[in-house]
Simulated scan of single mutants.
Amino acid sequence: MNPNIEITKSSGEKVKFSLEKLRASLKRSGADADLINQILDKVRDELYQGISTKEIYNRAFALLKKKKSYFASKYKLKKAIYELGPTGFPFENFIAAIFTYSGYKTDVGKILQGTCVSHEIDVVANKNGETTIVECKFHSEEGRNCNVKVPLYIAARFKDVKQHWDSKPHKTQLVAGYVVTNTRFTQDALHYGNCVGLKLLSWDHPKEDGLKDKIDRLGLYPITVSTLLTNREKQFLLSRDVVLCRDLIGDAFYLDHLGVSETRKERILNEIKQLCNS
């Protein structure tokens, strides 16, 4: 393989191909070393100058799916989160679920009064007498990062809500503001967020505790990771607030509403159970 092969990211940026990055993403799928090496060999043989990350992803995904569908499900996690769109509301429910499974009591779309105006907050999370407000910035297209305008805007809202909150008696203390995105923050956004004390959560930030790490650790995969459900079926489930794979295990009757055959229903639920238990 030519060590100087450049690949084209979804943003249009060209970067050097990294075998180790691909190995790491395949490893997260749960595939063993032998299967990972087989896929790396095949992908490496098919590389050419300027190949898109999408083409590399599609090839690796197809090879994983051929072996075990739930490996492919875990591998497509990032893409699956983009598929929660376009409204962003399922993403808010998804983020609320991450906080719920981390021990918080959550409300989605709650109105909180500020000193100047009232604000609709995406997720309000309470734990141990402390309240955290969470704003979600969802992108349905790859290659779009969160710039500094986002934490600037959220910091102003948090300040307005906190000033009013602190001026009135409350059962809990308002301690933190969060900005959560399914993409990445620019360096300016990270610097500003850290400077004003906002907590920032993106696909890979904070390191080893980003969105992808939390999802894997908690086993909270969105329903859109399924390789066996059609797009129409996924949208039907999302419209019924079935956002997590583990929700479908408890609400399998929705598959009957969709007219899914018993054989296919068994395969879908088996894939999802393997995924949640992996």
Rank of each mutant, 00 (worst) to 15 (best):
K212S: 15
K212G: 09
D213L: 09
K214W: 15
I215D: 11
D216C: 11
D216K: 13
D216H: 15
L218S: 08
L218K: 10
L218N: 09
G219A: 11
G219N: 12
G219I: 04
G219W: 03
L220S: 11
L220M: 10
L220K: 04
L220W: 05
Y221T: 12
Y221S: 13
Y221L: 07
Y221A: 11
P222F: 02
P222W: 00
P222R: 00
P222Q: 01
P222M: 01
P222Y: 03
P222L: 00
I223N: 04
I223Y: 07
I223P: 10
I223G: 08
T224V: 05
T224W: 12
V225F: 00
V225Q: 04
S226W: 05
T227G: 01
L228Q: 14
L229W: 03
L229C: 10
T230G: 04
N231A: 12
N231P: 11
N231I: 06
N231H: 08
R232W: 05
R232G: 11
E233S: 06
Q235S: 13
Q235E: 13
Q235N: 15
L238I: 05
S239M: 06
R240Y: 07
R240V: 01
D241G: 02
D241C: 04
V242T: 06
V243T: 12
L244G: 08
L244R: 00
C245M: 07
D247R: 00
D247W: 01
D247K: 02
D247E: 12
D247A: 02
L248W: 04
L248D: 06
G250A: 05
D251F: 02
D251Q: 15
D251I: 00
D251A: 10
D251Y: 09
A252H: 13
A252K: 15
F253S: 14
Y254F: 15
L255A: 07
L255D: 07
L255Q: 07
D256S: 12
D256Y: 05
D256V: 09
H257I: 03
G259L: 08
S261P: 09
E262S: 12
E262M: 08
T263Q: 13
T263R: 14
R264A: 10
R264G: 00
R264C: 08
R264F: 15
E266Y: 11
E266A: 12
R267M: 13
R267Q: 15
I268V: 12
I268L: 03
I268Y: 08
L269C: 03
L269I: 10
N270G: 06
E271K: 09
E271M: 04
